[in-house]
């Protein structure tokens, strides 16, 4: 008995020993920073120069209540998530369904549609900024058909929408590929049975394809939620880091960046904001899971 347990202990030790390199890396680069952020969020921190660390309890969190820029950032982010996630999910589904219908040259179109996802978002943003330019492609086209152009980059009412359009366009294809893979799994026999019962293409799509894809949709929605809540690079490049015009492209992550690196001595507040954002994402994901009931299908 004694021998048995010693052997077990030794095997366990061996196991952890073999895992130690990756455990160390995880602790150093993931778990450590997470704990450090929680620690920082309860302090007023000045890292530069002489440095100072002062415990302030929940001050950083209560400060959020009367920081109107933080509220604007949160509102912008929520607006962005609420529009982009459904739109890109729906677009991905439609794209996948059409590319799975057996059209001529669908391989070619699959590749073409997937291209935006392969491009780095910084490059895409720069390209779009050229197209959105007052003398750029989109405005010239609008003027060509007799419409008045927009100041996409400088008008606070439009700037965030411009980023939304760009992001929907560039991330939908990624989810399209996931849908395409899932579509292969739907048995042909189900469609055949529906055809015999006299269902038209829309009924087949709505009553078979969509429900069969539900687990995948749930995955796509959650990934989309997490990704869109963390919007940073596009709005950063769009506004050169300021979140302007008139705070219209200010997102939570951009605000965290500003408090952490631009203004001195607000690292603690930035950490608190980051912590709250993580909570918001967690809650949104849990809600999404609860409502989609992904296990119910099987």
């Amino acid at each position: 008995m004694q021998r048995q347990s010693r052997k077990k202990m030794r095997e366990m030790g061996q196991g952890y020993f073999f895992m130690s390199p990756s455990l160390l890396v995880l602790a150093l680069f993931i778990i450590g920073p997470i704990l450090y952020v929680v620690f920082l969020s309860f302090h007023k921190v000045q890292l530069l120069g002489n440095g100072s660390l002062e415990f302030v309890g929940l001050d950083n969190f209560s400060r959020l209540a009367d920081d109107s820029r933080a509220q604007i950032a949160l509102w912008n982010t929520i607006k962005y998530v609420a529009i982009v996630v459904p739109a890109q999910t729906f677009l991905a589904l439609v794209l996948a369904a059409t590319l799975n219908a057996g059209l001529k040259g669908q391989q070619f179109f699959r590749i073409v549609y997937f291209l935006p996802t392969l491009t780095s978002s910084a490059v895409l943003t720069l390209i779009f900024m050229w197209m959105y330019n007052k003398n750029g492609l989109i405005n010239s086209m609008l003027e060509g058909i007799g419409l008045q152009g927009y100041n996409f980059l400088g008008d606070p009412d439009i700037a965030l929408n411009a980023i939304m359009i760009m992001n929907i366009w560039s991330t939908a294809p990624f989810f399209m590929v996931i849908y395409l893979a899932a579509l292969q799994d739907i048995p042909e026999s189900v469609y055949e049975a529906a055809e015999i019962d006299g269902a038209n293409w829309f009924q087949k799509f709505w009553k078979i394809t969509v429900p069969q894809l539900r687990p995948v949709t749930s995955f796509v929605a959650i990934m989309g939620l997490i990704g869109t809540f963390q919007l940073f690079d596009q709005s950063y490049i769009f506004s050169a880091g300021s979140g302007g015009p008139d705070n219209s492209t200010l997102t939570v992550v951009l605000l965290i960046y500003q408090y952490a690196f631009k203004t001195l001595g607000t690292m603690g507040y930035a950490a608190a904001l980051a912590f709250i954002l993580a909570l918001v994402i967690l809650i949104a994901t849990l809600l999404q899971r609860k409502f989609s009931k992904e296990e119910s299908l099987y």
């Binding site: 820029r69 400088g154 008008d155 606070p156 009412d157 300021s242 979140g243 302007g244 015009p245 008139d246 705070n247 500003q258 631009k262 203004t263 001195l264």
Partner: peptide
Amino acid sequence: GPNMPIIVNNFNNQFMSAFLGK
């Protein structure tokens, strides 16, 4: 003074919308 970066950021953001007549 030391608080200028904060002041400038807030001023610029709001002044732009006033400049655009919003």
